[in-house]
């Protein structure tokens, strides 16, 4: 496999498509004939990151599997807004059972495909962060340790948005939710809590673990593609901003996801068999204020008297991520993506 730099393109490799790119280097989303796994008419809020992330990921998986894919969905926003009787937005074979059992249901589907002599049919399970890090974690951990042939995708919007924005174990410190309200001496969610699912997944020594955001489509698709090259349990954690729950402008969804990565608050990396194999470096380092201040869930940090000490603690989290994953290198500035040719 040789690599060649894509350095000439007008918009580099960051935009969805580019008329100057070879077909093979274009994103799935730029394809007129993309699967549109989740179709128009769904009832997600304006600017929903999860609807976008789901289409990104599943369309990529559809391409990687040549359409031989079924999806299992946990209860949650994605399920509710996509399949209210009598209409479904899914164009793919799709199954919803319960909130906490998507990994196990997917295991069953995968086993059925194997026993039915259809191993080419690949199984993707998907859930929000609640269905992943909280109620679904038992089943997820079981699916991981058995190394069942399932790609599990968590669309992380950092809370229980479907039920009205309550805290989950993926809710970040200081964030206001309906159950961690911005009241009292320490408003918002507590520091020092929360589950880092990608690292927990890695601890299972499964073949592939990766994080991504809806802000970098090429990266996300490459990870889905990579994930599909493995058999066994795989985990993809996608940050999907929620305009409703985060109190952000509906047009800011991708912008916020990008800032989450550029601040270091959401490290984007991939790991194989428990070992980090690559990280997406920060391209334009950004202080966390820029990320926090455009979300109403953090509005209590930016009142008449800004809570600088809280902001500093959040910055420290970002800095720790930057150090832990080596998100900044000397070559970071001006770095362009390399694609395989």
């Amino acid at each position: 496999m040789t690599t060649r730099p894509v350095r000439f393109y007008q918009v580099g490799s960051f935009a969805v498509g580019n008329r100057l790119l070879e077909d093979g280097d274009r994103t799935v989303q730029s394809d007129l004939n993309r699967a549109n796994s989740i179709d128009s008419g769904h009832r997600a809020c304006q600017g929903c990151g999860e609807a976008l992330g789901a289409r990104y990921a599943l369309d990529a998986a559809m391409r990687a599997t040549n359409g031989q894919m079924v999806a299992v969905n946990a209860t949650g926003c994605l399920e509710v807004f996509s399949t209210p009787y009598p209409e479904t937005s899914w164009r793919i074979a799709w199954l919803h059972s319960l909130f906490g059992n998507a990994p196990a249901v997917a295991t069953g589907v995968s086993a059925a495909m194997r026993v039915k002599g259809k191993p080419e049919v690949r199984v993707v399970a998907q859930a929000g962060d609640g269905g992943t890090v909280d109620i679904g974690f038992g089943c997820l951990s079981g699916m991981f340790e058995r190394n069942d042939d399932v790609l599990f995708i968590c669309y992380d919007n950092e809370g229980y948005m479907n039920t009205g924005v309550q805290r989950s174990a993926a809710t970040p410190p200081a964030a206001r939710t309906a159950t961690t309200d911005a009241v009292g001496p320490e408003p918002g969610n507590a520091f020092g809590q929360g589950k880092d699912l990608p690292r927990l997944a890695m601890a299972h020594d499964i073949a592939y673990v990766a994080t991504a955001t809806v802000a970098d489509l090429h990266d996300l698709e490459a990870k889905v593609e990579r994930a599909m090259q493995f058999r066994g349990a795989r985990y993809l954690h996608i940050l999907v901003p929620c305009p409703l729950g985060w109190g952000s402008a509906s047009d800011d969804t991708i912008h916020i996801a990008r800032l989450a990565k550029e601040t270091g608050l959401f490290p984007v990396f991939e790991a194989e068999y428990g070992k980090v194999t690559s990280v997406s470096h920060i391209r334009r380092r950004t202080p966390v204020e820029e990320y926090l201040s455009i979300q109403r869930r953090y509005a209590h940090l930016f009142g008449k008297k800004p809570r600088t000490e809280v902001i500093a603690r959040i910055q420290a989290i970002a800095d720790r991520n930057i150090e832990r994953y080596g998100l900044i290198t000397d070559e970071t500035v001006g770095a362009t993506r390399e694609v395989t040719a």
Partner: peptide, 10 residues
């Protein structure tokens, strides 16, 4: 560049 085509959640 296909960005609008790609980024639309709907």
């Amino acid at each position: 560049c296909d960005n609008c085509f790609g980024v639309c959640p709907d």
